[in-house]
Nucleic acid binder design. Structure first.
Lengths: 223, 223, 223, 223
DNA sequence: AATGAATGAGGTTTCATTCAT
DNA sequence: GATGAATGAAACCTCATTCAT
């Protein structure tokens, strides 16, 4: 190991692509910590080790900067989850695939808490232009889960027991539970649960119910 | 002629308690729609039909105003849910109590979307001072759910099988799933599911898992 | 004469109508001297003895402030000229009325050089929204002159010799000449001509031609 | 194939003299449309198809660039008018020379509206450094008119009747009338008058007065 | 009880300008 | 000859907050 120090704040004359990533890093951190409105472009620029005009030259406005953050973090999260579900190769049972995806999800949100905060807390509370951006992410994840339930149904030999509407509702419930647990895991300061532990909690929470439903076994209020 | 005009914009000389509620109404709406930072005291005062200094006279600052909003909406939500679980009188099985609470929860959040947005989206993204305020709400809901699980455990003859940490996680998963389903139900524009239908979906989603857990039956990754 | 000093910069708590006039005074001076873009709201506010936010509270933006300046100065100029042409009572020959109007015009532009600069130099060079405002002023003055030429024609017993199009052209030529002379008079720093002297120059310049035209006597290029 | 592509946006390596003209073209257009302050060096450079540093290398600053624009357009206008008055060879009567000059003036300002706008509207409203530049132009035009009046005076056998100050005033009146008529002619959308027709209107407007003045015949207010 | 008048501080954004290649 | 990278300064505008009535 010789000189390992490289430092975030490179001196000067950095190519555009690199500088943009530095800016996005700083912006994600700023937006996550203070919220969209309260984060100041001054602070973001300073945190990026750059002057403000350069931020405006590359990312045209605060809105565009925020949008770029959302897009980058969305893509990273989706890629991580997708890679998780695909790990293990070909014939994997549905519960195992879901477990893998959840582990990847919780691992990613734990490793990138700022990115997750931007997506889950900040972007959704800033009205139409940004909420729409996150809606795409949710839709993509919900679709992933829907596919998984389909696989599980085929494995159990009971395809088509569930209406599309019910599957959609279940997928949203699952995503919501996962999101909430991710927040919970991130904010547990002392003795934070590992990704696998959190994923296990969620599997325990939901998998039995899903299996029951596929088997036609329903809970009803009347008894 | 005793009490004449009542309208929203009362002319003048309104007693303090009433004025404060008007202000809180306007503030909740403003914070819900624009977020804490982006909502301006100017707009809130105007929406309340009052001059700005009066807002400062009654609620000391923007922070205090936000805090008051959080407290009012928290209390209302908790009261609604608690009333739901208690409906039906004495000896009610745990799943029935949970069902009742969920119905009350969905009904309240649907009837007060701004209040729910302030609690769930805005307050949690504004850092320490306000997140703490919501933590109390979460704690109370978690306690409610914990009690319910305790009841269920006693009913099933298996008390104390679950660690506090696991119960906390389950409570968060449940709330997250509930909120996500509320959104989903509200945004399904054509043929939106009723509150009871949504509650049934959530019960199906989670109750079997909870029962299994109380019975010591866990899902494990290793097959 | 006791204490004659009143001062422009009154201390504080001035009623809105008065403050607005102070702001407009400062704005007219600033815009006249530096141009619309180069004049800064900071400087205007300071010159008005007021903080910037108050300027924005009363006149909503720089654009609106500029528009208000144009409107105030336009109204003042039109009023002055109209009063001039009406002085002298009932039966006044047309050349005398024109002379009176020109004297009033030059007196006003000399007494309010900043207002005139805003109207003639600044407003016209700032594109559509403002140029339109001044166009109204010009149209009103041109109409005044057109009426005068009509009176002169009736006096000379030769009504209808001139086409509407030609009268319009002559009116615009006259207005342009007057505008140009006003600038010239204002910028002649040493020994500036009086309003009457300037008006005489313009009458000499144009009246003979107008009389000739009314008499059917035209200049033609072919000699 | 010798000279191939010529287009406006030449690729690279253009000789300095050509590049400078491209820059001045872009600058004149920008200044005319947005005014001196509002026109940005960014836009000018882009419109010229050149990077900003190159603009600064050739023309040292925004001020110098504007000055260069004024000088180029002044020279072009003066040259056009002078050429107009000289057309027709040796012995031409004064009114004919004025007529020729006016036709040339109208033709040039109509053909180069941006250049005229820079000279007449922008340069004059930007304070000392630039107003001086235009003063030279005015002086030259005034001299031209003065010469014409001198010629007319000699033709009429009455030299030296008019003071310098009066001649200066008359020249300004003439230019103002001309500019105003140009605007009027351009904005008459239906059936716009030709340049010659407009020039004739102006000659009718002013020539009789000038002749009268040379003959000692003045209009006086006292009737 | 209620408000018109007023401000310090800080926000986003843009500009003219230079440096190193 | 020509440019991508970078910035100090300053513009417009808004906000939370108070004072005097």
């Amino acid at each position: 190991m010789k000189a390992a120090v490289v430092g975030t704040k490179t001196g000067k004359r950095v190519p555009r692509a690199v500088r943009e990533q530095q800016m996005l890093d700083a912006a994600v951190a700023g937006f996550a910590r203070h919220g969209y409105s309260a984060a100041s472009m001054d602070d973001i620029a300073e945190a990026a080790g750059v002057s403000k005009p350069l931020v405006y030259q590359y990312l045209k406005s605060k809105e565009d900067l925020f949008t770029a953050c959302i897009e980058r973090e969305s893509a990273a999260l989706i890629a991580a989850v997708r890679a998780g579900t695909l790990s293990g190769g070909g014939a994997v049972p549905a519960d195992r695939m879901l477990w893998n995806g959840l582990c990847a999800f919780f691992a990613h949100t734990a490793a990138h808490p700022d990115g997750w905060a931007v997506l889950h807390q900040q972007a959704r509370s800033q009205g139409q232009p940004f909420a729409d951006g996150v809606a795409l992410l949710r839709a993509e994840i919900a679709e992933l889960v829907t596919e998984l339930i389909g696989v599980a149904a085929r494995d159990a030999g009971c395809d088509g027991v569930l209406a599309e509407r019910e599957v959609s509702g279940l997928a949203h419930a699952l995503v919501g539970a996962a999101e909430s647990l991710a927040d919970w895991a991130n904010t547990r300061e002392q003795d934070p649960p590992s990704a696998k532990e959190t994923a296990a909690t969620l599997m325990n929470f939901c998998w039995a119910g899903l299996e029951n439903l596929l088997g036609g076994d329903r809970w009803t209020p009347a008894h």
